[in-house]
Design a protein around this nucleic acid. Sequence first.
DNA 1: TGGCTGTACTG
DNA 2: CAGTACA
DNA 3: GCCA
Length: 770
Amino acid sequence: MTAASKSDKARFFEELYRLNEFESDGEPNEAREFLKTCSKPILSRTSEEPSLIPPRKVLKPFKKVPSIQRSISEPEKIKDVPNATVGSIGKRSGLRGNPQVPAASGSLLGKEASSSAGSADSTNQRPSIEDRRTVSNPVPNTLVLTNSTGIDTMLGKKRKKDTIKLVREADRIFNGFEFFFLRNDDKSPLRKRRITLSREHGAIWTTTWTNKITHLIVDNDLTRKDVLTYLKLNSLPPQVIMVNEEYLSDCFVQRRVMNSLLKKYQVKDPDAGAAKQMAPPPPASENSDSSLQLKAPQSKLSRWGNPPQQETLPRIAQARPASYPQQPVVTGGPEALSPREATTLSDKDGSMVAETQDFGALTEWIQLAKDTEGLPLDNEDEDAVDSVDHSDSDDGGASPLRAPAKRIKRFAIKQGGTNQANFQCMTGGTAASTANPNDYTISVLERLGAYYKRIGDQWRPTAYQKACGMLRKQDHLICTYEEAIEIRTIGHRLAKKIVEIATTGRLRRLESAEADPTDAPLKLFVGIYGVNTTLASEWLRQGHRTLDDLVKNVKLSENQKLGIEHYDDLQQRIPREEVTALGQYIKDAAAALDPDIEIIIGGSYRRGAPTSGDIDIIISKPGTTSTTSLTPFLHSLITHLTSQKFLVAALAVPHDDGTGSKWHGCCVLPSKPRQSQIWRRIDFLLVPASERGAALLYFTGDDIFNRSMRLLANKMGMSLNQRGLYENVMRDRWTRKKVTEGRLVEGREERRIFERLGVPWREPWERVLH
DNA sequence: TGGCTGTACTG
DNA sequence: CAGTACA
DNA sequence: GCCA
């Protein structure tokens, strides 16, 4: 059955494409798509089709004189400025701290040149393994063990000399893991043996405490308390897994990564009952920051995960052929990674549940019972099909049901009259940092998706993201067309690409795309805050290629200038610890100003991500029902944080009609020496208590999850936005635009919004769909 | 073949 | 208003 | 890009 339907489907598409006379998914198609969707010049640069030039924009650059005399200022000075302008906070509503005023001179050129060189150079886009590994941000109290010869071993290059023989690839169950032992020396023969074995199985042995550490292996005679004391920490970073010696033994014996949360692996706790500690603060998830929990080894990711690359970096992969350019060549472990351990904790009742390892199980566990989205099996059951016809696509969702011809993909279960089973928000995603055998494939697809995005394609990027999200949920390497096409949101063309990537390690389409000489500068330009495809391609068409060109010849908005000045900083990902620190700084400041104010860190941080692109702060206060009532607070908070040199720039401030709700800008950690301060993007969202739930939902994301929820609401005749879930929304019959706000159904409680939509509750970290 | 989320700030 | 951004 |  599946075979038949599959080919049907394939044939269908082939015919369809033939009709469109766009057969291959090679370049021509892309060109067409590009022109069709945005009629922007990029690809036709040479021909200079006047008609393709966006009518309106064309002249703009000249409209206001390409002045630019202001060659921007020196970074160092800039950072001081805010202070000087502290008082002058507002441009519009008085909330804008407009720093970056200083216009020293062109020292920027120096910096700029370097950044353009670095980022623009297409050949230079592979983050190198070694550099990435260094900085990040080691925990302050670097702990160095005193009693060990092992240390010397580690600190010196000795590690290299001190060769160990790795076990065969398939058995390197600890690939990507970084172990910190306690006691961390190899004096004891037994411990030495464990360390050696760990390394032979792929682990990295570390003797200094860094944020790359994935596991903390504790001697059996030590307690949790001893550990914390030893490390001088109040609590263990959430991503670190702490286990006792038994854990290693079992892993070796069973040749697999064990579930670290099993009772027998817990380090004993003199006080309370065992376990805990890593357990997430229970229902606290509601309160933001505390939510994070799951963990998963992603040391690899962080290792070369933050270069000024861009969206693809977070989850670079491994596996696959070494030939591929971007492939990390570490231990050279092509094999699909051995399943990594992943843990998910549930705190609903305060109890802790964990799932180990295999993706299948993890996925399964995460999904609530009704999710059918299970696995590969094709049960053909679901014959009830027809009964549920209703269409609803979801983002990508296919109504599996669709009777006859294809009941191929997934089966769904109708729920309460609407068949929302195909909405991605119904199944949830995998933990952000969980390693997956398809990681390499995903990283390649993400790059191609990113390419389409910067080229102006509106839909392919979304399709690629969804596909990646689905791939990440699979428990094994998808390498055949049949397997791929079975997956929801993956169609003919993506399936072909997946096969190509999985079997050859390359994707010709991507190679040709990135080989385009205009791609590097395009990528460079869209990396600027405030610049997207339209502008970037226009600049490209005008012949600009470097940031320097832009600074000298193009009319830039204030935000864009700032985006260029701090290009490198803003391109960096933010380690979780720093987000925590930045958030704490804000909380302290807020509490001092108004003890009732509630500060919640949202975004990827709330989803448990090991690194974030920016910091999202929700500002709320019990009892409030309108944004307006919080505006004064925001004003004083901004003023205060600016005077503290925490906020260093404002990019977007709330409209002064009182309805404004967001403030966007940049901040740094004042406690750091100025030189090492990195500018970070920060967003504040004002949220009255009555809209807290909807805002939390919105600000937690991810993107795909939000769109899915909103689409579902829409299909159910409702409307969901950051303020609440509304019903009886009247939409224009033709434009489908909302005509009436509708009646508020729920805005206060996040959970109730899920309930109203019939979506099983998803913890923040289960909302990672791309 | 048409739809694919909904909103806020800038200039 | 188009462009950009936020999730 | 995928889907209905």
